[in-house]
C-alpha cells in the first residue's frame, strides 16, 4: 500500500509541476506534429499517402516525441537537483521509478490524444473502426516504450553525454515494441480489419510490457546507487 502511495505522490508531484507551465507537454506535442508533417512530405505522392503509412508515421512520431519528453522530464530533475532528493527520501526506489513511469505515460497519452486524431484526419486512416483494439495497442505500446525509457533516462541523469546516449540506448531495445505497435495498427487499417493479426501483436506487446517493467523495477535500485 505504501509502495503505491509513494508512486502516486511522485506522479502527483510531476503532474503538478507540469500543470504550472505546460512546458514539456506543449514542446512534445509540437515536436510530434512536426514529425508527422515531415513524414507526410516523405510519403505523400499526388496528394495520397500509402494506406498503411499512417501506422508507421504515428508510431515514429510517438517514439521521437517520447525521447524528447523523457529527456526534458529528467533534465528538470537534474537542474533542480531534485532527483538526488527523491533518491535520498526513505522510500523504496522501485516506487519512485513507478511514479516517474506513470508521469511519462500520462504525458505520452496526452500527446496521443491530439496526435492520433490528427494522423487519422490527415491520412484519412480509419483508426477508430475498432476503438478497443486501438486503445489496447497504443496503451500497451506506450507503456513498454516508457518503461525502458524512464529507466534509461533516469540513469543517464548523471552521464555527461546523456543527450546522445538516450536514443542510442533506447531505440535498439524498444524497436520490438515499435514493430509490434506499427504492425498491429496497420492491421487495423486493412479493410476488412485484420483482427487476429491485431490480437497477435497485442499479445506480444503485453508480453514485452511484462518483461520490460519487471526488468526495470528489478534493476532500478542498483542502477541508481552510486
Amino acid at each position: 500500500m505504501r509502495f503505491l502511495r509513494i508512486a502516486w505522490l511522485v506522479l502527483r508531484k510531476d503532474v503538478a509541476i507540469e500543470l504550472r507551465s505546460y512546458e514539456i507537454l506543449s514542446t512534445t506535442l509540437f515536436f510530434a506534429v512536426a514529425c508527422v508533417a515531415i513524414f507526410s512530405f516523405a510519403f505523400v505522392r499526388e496528394g495520397q499517402a500509402p494506406v498503411d503509412a499512417a501506422a508507421g508515421i504515428l508510431w515514429i512520431a510517438i517514439a521521437f516525441s517520447g525521447t524528447l519528453a523523457l529527456g526534458r522530464t529528467f533534465e528538470r530533475e537534474r537542474y533542480g537537483e531534485t532527483l538526488k532528493a527523491l533518491l535520498l527520501a526513505p522510500a523504496p526506489r522501485p516506487a519512485i521509478y513507478l511514479g516517474k513511469l506513470l508521469g511519462i505515460v500520462a504525458l505520452l497519452f496526452a500527446t496521443e490524444v491530439i496526435v492520433v486524431p490528427m494522423v487519422a484526419f490527415l491520412f484519412s486512416a480509419p483508426f477508430f473502426s475498432r476503438p478497443g483494439l486501438l486503445v489496447a495497442l497504443l496503451g500497451l505500446g506506450t507503456i513498454g516504450y516508457a518503461a525502458v525509457g524512464t529507466l534509461f533516462a533516469a540513469m543517464l541523469v548523471r552521464a555527461r553525454t546523456r543527450d546522445v546516449m538516450l536514443p542510442i540506448l533506447l531505440y535498439p531495445i524498444t524497436i520490438p515494441v515499435i514493430i509490434a505497435g506499427v504492425r498491429g495498427t496497420s492491421a487495423l487499417l486493412a479493410s476488412p480489419v485484420d483482427e487476429p493479426v491485431a490480437m497477435l501483436w497485442i499479445g506480444l506487446l503485453s508480453f514485452f510490457d511484462v518483461v520490460f517493467v519487471t526488468l526495470s523495477l528489478w534493476t532500478f535500485e542498483p542502477l541508481m546507487t552510486e
Binding site: M155, R158, A159, R160, T161, L169, I173, L215
Partner: peptide, 17 residues
Amino acid sequence: YGGPGAEKLAAAMGIFG
C-alpha cells in the same frame, strides 16, 4: 563514450539485450 559511470549503463544494456 558514456563517460564516468558508463559501466552501469552498459550493464543495463547487457541485461535488456
